[in-house]
Nucleic acid binder design. Structure first.
Lengths: 233, 233
DNA sequence: AAGGCTTCTGGACAACTGTCAAGACTTTCC
DNA sequence: GGAAAGTCTTGACAGTTGTCCAGAAGCCTT
C-alpha cells in the first residue's frame, strides 16, 4: 500500500499529475453521489457506479473511505468560496452590493441546493467523525472570511461601522441560508423570495452610521457590550 | 403485523399505557445511541444493546427503523422546548431576560451538547430522507416560536419594537448555537464564553426603541414585516 | 517484441445491516 | 388452573458494506 506516497518520489511529474487528476475525477463522482444520497447512504460501490470505473479502483487512489471523503470535503471547498468575491469587487454602492449578495445567495440556493445540503450533512458528520473536523473547520473559516469581506465592504460603501463581529455575521447568514435550504427542499415556493427579503432586511442592521454625532440606538449597546465583563455572571 | 394498531381497540387502557411506556423506554435508548454515534452509524442492534432488551423487540414496538427514528425525533421535541419558557416567565427586566437566555443557551451547550448534535444530524438527514421532514419541520417551528416568545418579551420589557421577523430571529440564534456547538465539540475552550457574549450582544440589535418620533433606519422594513408576522402567527 | 510498470477489473471475504418468524416466557382473564 | 394474549429471545435470511487481492489490461521504455 501507500502506493500514492511511493509514486511521488519515483515517477515523472506528468504521471503524478495524471494520478492527481484521476483522484479529482473520482472525488467528483463521490461528491455527486454524496449530494444525491447523503453521507449515511453513500457506499463506495455507488460512487464507483457514478464514475467510469469499478469499485475496486477507489482503493487504488484512496487509502480508505475516510480518506476519500476527506478529499471530497477539501475539493468542495475550492468550488464553494469563489462565487461572491466578484460581487464584492464590482459593486459600487451599498445597495448594489446588498442586491448582489442577496441575489447570489438566492441563485446558490436555487442552482446548488444539493451541493449545500451535502455541506450541511458533512458538517454535521464532523460533529461525530473526528477525521473530518479539521477540514470542516477550515472550510467554515473560509466561508466566514467570505461573509466578512462582504459585510465589511458594505459598511465601507455606506460609510458606516459594523456592529457585529465576524463570527456573528457568518452565523447569522449561515442560519438564514440553512433555514432557506430546508424550506426550499421541502417544497416551499416562498423559500427563494423569503431568503432574498430577509438578507436585504438583515444587512442594514449590521451597521450603524459612523459620521453622525448623535448616538444611534445600537451604538450604546455596542459600547455596553464592550465592557461585558460586568454583565456576565 | 400492525399489532400496535390492533391493540388499541381491544385491550385495557393500562395495557396501552404500558405499551406506550415501553416505546418511550426504547426510544430513549435509541436517542442515547444516536446522540453518541450519529445517524449514519446507529444500528438497531446497537440501540438494543443500550437497552435492557434484545434486538428483536424493536420490531415488536416499531414497524421499522424509520418508524423508530421518527418516534425519537418526536420525543426529542418534548424534551427540547421546555427549558426556556420559565426564563421568559420569571424575568422582570430586559437585562435579566437577556442574561437568563444567554445563560440558558450556554448551559444547554455545556450539558446537552450530544443531544443537540443529534438534532443537527437529524435535521440534516431530513434534507435527504423525506420521512423525517415533516417532524423536523414541526420541531423547527416550535423552536422558532420559543425564540419568538423570548425576543418578544425582551422587546416588551424594554418598551421597544422588534426589527426582525420571527424566522430571522430564529435563524440567527440557531446559527450562533450551531457555530458554538461545532467549536465546543472541537475542543475550543472559548466556545461557551463566546456564545454568551455573542447572544448578549446580538439581542439588543433585534429591537429599536418605539417611543422615538424619528423614523429609525429599517423602520419601514419592520412595518412591512409586521403584517406578515401577524398573518403567519 | 518483450518486459516492467501502472492502472483497472471482478470476485471473494468477513462483518454488519434491517427484517422476520418460530418459539419460549410472562401476564391476564375466565 | 388453564387458555389466551401479550411480551421477549434467539436464530436465521438476504442484502449490503468496506476491504483486499490475484490477475487481466493498458502503457511505456528498451
Amino acid at each position: 500500500m501507500t502506493k500514492a506516497a511511493e509514486r511521488i518520489d519515483r515517477v515523472s511529474r506528468s504521471q503524478v499529475d495524471k494520478f492527481e487528476e484521476r483522484r479529482k475525477t473520482l472525488a467528483d463522482a463521490a461528491i455527486q453521489t454524496l449530494s444525491e444520497l447523503g453521507y449515511a447512504r453513500t457506499s463506495l460501490r455507488e460512487i464507483a457506479q457514478n464514475s467510469a470505473f469499478s469499485h475496486g479502483v477507489l482503493h487504488y487512489y484512496f487509502r480508505d473511505k475516510v480518506d476519500l471523503i476527506t478529499y471530497c470535503v477539501r475539493q468542495y471547498k475550492a468550488h464553494c468560496v469563489q462565487r461572491y468575491d466578484q460581487i464584492v469587487a464590482t459593486a459600487r454602492t451599498g445597495d448594489a452590493l446588498a442586491q448582489g449578495f442577496a441575489e447570489g445567495l438566492v441563485q446558490t440556493l436555487r442552482d446548488e441546493a444539493l451541493m449545500h445540503r451535502l455541506w450541511y450533512d458533512l458538517r454535521s458528520q464532523s460533529l461525530f467523525e473526528e477525521s473530518f473536523r479539521a477540514d470542516v473547520l477550515e472550510i467554515d473559516q473560509s466561508l466566514e472570511r467570505m461573509i466578512w469581506r462582504i459585510v465589511s465592504r458594505f459598511a465601507e460603501l455606506g460609510d458606516a461601522r459594523l456592529v457585529v463581529p465576524s463570527p456573528v455575521a457568518y452565523a447569522m447568514f449561515d442560519g438564514l441560508f440553512q433555514q432557506a435550504l430546508l424550506h426550499y427542499l421541502s417544497g416551499s415556493g416562498n423559500a427563494l423570495a423569503d431568503l432574498r427579503e430577509r438578507v436585504l432586511q438583515l444587512l442594514p442592521h449590521l451597521v450603524c452610521p459612523s459620521q453622525s454625532g448623535t448616538t444611534q440606538p445600537g451604538a450604546r449597546l455596542v459600547a455596553a457590550h464592550q465592557q461585558r465583563a460586568s454583565h456576565s455572571a
